[in-house]
């Protein structure tokens, strides 16, 4: 992605490889869960990372935070390389990137008072005196919309939405620059979900937080993101400004993904074109040759089965990795929706 102002976080060719044993005593197979992912995060923006389960979006997040060790690439936070950083320095760097997970039930220690759950990152990174610590926790609770009195309660006394507020309070305790939100609102009912999204928007406006927002719910991603990157089988297949990606998808996978999301309006839903992809996403340990999406792509051409498509500029903003833009119909960055029919594509 083109760096306009100096990016806060710059990820280049990130690779994360697992080598699970398929069966006992069999050879290990290499599984590249993240295979050459690059993106920038500019201060104050929200980048949405979308894709189906197993596409590597969570592993990308974990890799850049080194919760799993990447096997290649580079992650620079304000110009400082994080990969290869010794443990002690990594710990201080992590203060700037905090993560919020999907399940607020398992990310808070049930035996710890709210005060100590939220205070823990302060103990690690800031080291405050007792009264200062209590004051800071009270302020954090207020900031996430909860009364400070709650600090002497236990997690089980809270609802799912309130717990997610608590995990956000803990994540912002040590003043990070970036929050990585991994399906952070996915487990919540829609009304509660919107309250938490509202809180996130407020926090980004107030304290200039930058978000990497990972989610499978495309409606939510469209709402919250400035830019969006779409992943398929460990790679980014398309990225760009949210409005461009959603209104003029340039990659057939993005087009299919968007068409699969039902819209809560019977009239609109009846009139929409639905592209039902056949099959499941392929096994990441047996990645298809050529374009990884060709096995499910309604536009697949001969070249797609053998050659890996490079990222080329998409019209409006961002980039797309698809042969339709360079060979065949030569979309040259335009939306796939401009193809009048699927039969325009030579088999």
């Amino acid at each position: 992605m083109t760096p306009s102002p100096e990016p806060l976080l710059s990820v280049r060719d990130l690779e994360v490889t697992f080598s699970p044993r398929k069966r006992l005593f069999r050879e290990r197979v290499e599984l590249r869960a993240v295979d050459g992912v690059s993106f920038d995060l500019t201060e104050g923006e929200t980048l949405g990372l979308v894709g189906e389960s197993g596409c590597g979006k969570s592993t990308t997040a974990r890799g850049l935070m080194r919760l799993v060790e990447p096997s290649g690439g580079s992650v620079r936070l304000e110009g400082r390389e994080l990969l290869g950083l010794p443990a002690k320095e990594l710990r201080s760097a992590r203060r700037d990137i905090q993560m919020v997970f999907q399940d607020p039930y398992s990310s808070l220690d049930p035996s710890m008072l709210v005060r100590d759950s939220i205070g823990e990152p302060l103990d690690v990174h800031v080291k405050l005196g007792r009264t200062e610590r209590v004051e800071r926790v009270a302020e954090l609770l207020r900031r996430v919309g909860l009364p400070p009195e709650y600090m002497t309660r236990y997690p089980h006394e809270f609802s799912g939405g309130q717990r997610q507020r608590l995990t956000i309070a803990r994540a912002i305790a040590a003043d990070p620059k970036i929050l990585v939100l991994d399906e952070a609102v996915s487990a919540l009912d829609v009304s509660t979900q919107n309250q938490v999204i509202g809180l996130l928007e407020e926090l980004s406006a107030q304290i200039g937080l930058t978000y990497l927002f990972i989610a499978h719910d495309l409606s939510v991603v469209r709402h919250i993101s400035d830019r969006v990157a779409v992943m398929y089988l460990g790679q980014i297949v398309e990225h760009g400004e949210a409005a461009r990606v959603f209104d003029a998808p340039a990659h057939p996978y993005t087009e299919a993904l968007l068409s699969a999301v039902p819209v809560p309006s019977p009239k609109t839903q009846r009139s929409r074109e639905r592209i039902v992809l056949s099959g499941d996403p392929p096994d990441p340990s047996r990645v298809p040759p050529g374009c990884r999406f060709h096995t499910r792509c309604t536009y697949a051409m001969d070249v797609c089965r053998t050659e890996v498509p490079p990222l080329t500029p998409a019209q409006g903003s961002g980039e797309v990795a698809c042969h339709l833009h360079t060979t065949g119909p030569r979309l040259a960055g335009a939306s796939v929706r401009t193809l009048a029919t699927r039969s325009e594509v030579p088999a």
């Binding site: 829609v190 009304s191 919107n194 509202g198 409606s219 939510v220 469209r222 409005a243 809560p264 609109t268």
Partner: peptide
């Protein structure tokens, strides 16, 4: 309330009600 709370992909500019 439920209808107003649904984030809509086809109408992203509307504020999310809750």
């Amino acid at each position: 309330g439920l209808l107003a709370a649904m984030p809509r992909m086809d109408n992203p500019s509307e504020a999310l009600a809750s």
